[in-house]
Amino acid sequence: MTVGQIASAQAGTLESNDIFIRMTAAPDGKGGSIAVESIVMQQFGDDILQTIKDCLAAAGLDGVDIHANDRGALKCTIVARMEAVAARYKEARR
């Protein structure tokens, strides 16, 4: 989906054990930010942030804003949702 000129995609749900992730092109086209909300923020906040960064690097993406709302997803779920949202984002950007 593209909103105006800005490429954007999302994946995942707000069900428990899942994570909802939205990826949007950063307004200035570079930099990019990551915002994480989680019900296990204290225990896994840093871990989730690192996982998202690793996934972005693996997908070769930068210059995107990430908003993630985590409902206690396991790491493999976060990785899967990141992979899905990255693929959808690339599709939307084309």
């Binding site: 995942g12 493999c76 779920t77 899967a80 949702r81 899905a84 693929a87």
Partner: peptide, 11 residues
């Protein structure tokens, strides 16, 4: 379908 396929693979 795309997201499910990826999730199943990672699981």
């Amino acid at each position: 379908k795309d997201a499910a396929r990826i999730l199943v693979r990672h699981s």
